[in-house]
Design a protein around this nucleic acid. Structure first.
Lengths: 180, 180
DNA sequence: AGGAAAAAGTTTGCTTCCGAACGATCAAGA
DNA sequence: TCTTGATCGTTCGGAAGCAAACTTTTTCCT
């Protein structure tokens, strides 16, 4: 991936792409600021995800989604699957498959609810707990390293702006949001 | 997905999750600010991606990655495969499959390079161009709508912070970065 | 009580998604 | 020249990823 300076890069920088795009669609009334912001959003998310996967999860033979699901169930022991799916930002259908994988590795348990037999609650096995207690500090250390290059003030601003973006998307469909 | 206010939500907010996590791992020295920032990053990216997919791409029977690849080739006509993959933030292996799908729908063309027969260059068909000229304005309009809720100043700050995150990740591996 | 409607999780079918191994092609040096 | 080493795109195997259809269970209405 990128990160060059001085010499001619073998790929196109964001700035070059912006220029090329403007030439390409210069007759259309477009919002370039929005396009750049969201392009940066996806690029950042992908870069961080790849970094965390390669430096932390890979050593434990763990996928990104597998880790996220384990983390959610670690924090919210006995959570119902639909809420786990929502927290992990994946569909119920995907969760079914991921849980099957994690179950086969002895990290998670499916447990029926006695009062409502439609529900399935998820719990970590002792092995799952042990794994999370080992992985998560490593995971967070890399998170800290990545974010550590930004000043404290910038981190707060960034986090708030990202939450605003989420709120902006959800506001278009849900009932009015009024918090914060 | 979320976006409730007043009544008890059927899911956990970011703030509640933060509290639960702190209770859960309170003996460990963790960087919560970094965890919150990156959690917000993934949530924002997912929310925007889902929104754009549902409101724009779905109407044209187009997947997210398919659209991104088409967009890159639209802007950089005749680009070599490996550069398209890098620009689209996917692996070469993934690109092979996606191009196969787009090719079967008559939107993209694979074209051998005469000077270096290892290379494959990608071009849009007239149908592909027509599709992009129709979809991209719609796509950008929704981008604009999402970002439009933030003040102009905030957008600039957000974009810059996200690029800093990308740079922070890449700096750990590449040669020193010195631009901007 | 009884039947319709809603809700939870699973299955199905198809498309990403990636690392590793692979075959083909080109580049550099003896 | 030829051969060793890179480089490019593809293939393979396995795991996400989702919408839509489906089964089971619960809720709601009369």
């Amino acid at each position: 991936m990128g990160g060059y300076a001085g010499a001619m890069p073998d790929h196109h920088t964001l700035e070059e792409t912006e220029r090329a795009m403007k030439e390409h669609v210069d007759t259309l009334p477009l919002d370039f600021a929005a396009a750049n912001a969201l392009s940066s959003l996806f690029r950042a998310a992908n870069a961080v995800r790849t970094e965390l996967t390669n430096r932390v999860l890979r050593n434990h033979d763990m996928t990104w989604t597998g880790f996220v699901v384990l983390w959610v169930v670690w924090i919210w022991d006995g959570m119902e699957t639909r809420h786990v799916a929502e927290s992990a930002d994946i569909s119920k259908a995907t969760l079914t498959g991921v849980v099957k994988t994690l179950e086969s590795r002895g990290l998670i348990l499916r447990e029926g609810d006695e009062n409502d037999r439609r529900l399935v609650r998820l719990r970590l096995t002792p092995e799952g707990v042990a794994l999370m207690e080992q992985i998560y500090p490593e995971f967070n250390a890399v998170e800290s390293e990545i974010i550590g290059n930004l000043s404290g003030n910038k981190v707060t601003t960034l986090t708030r702006a990202l939450r605003d973006v989420v709120k902006s998307v959800e506001t278009n469909h849900d009932v009015a949001v009024q918090d914060d």
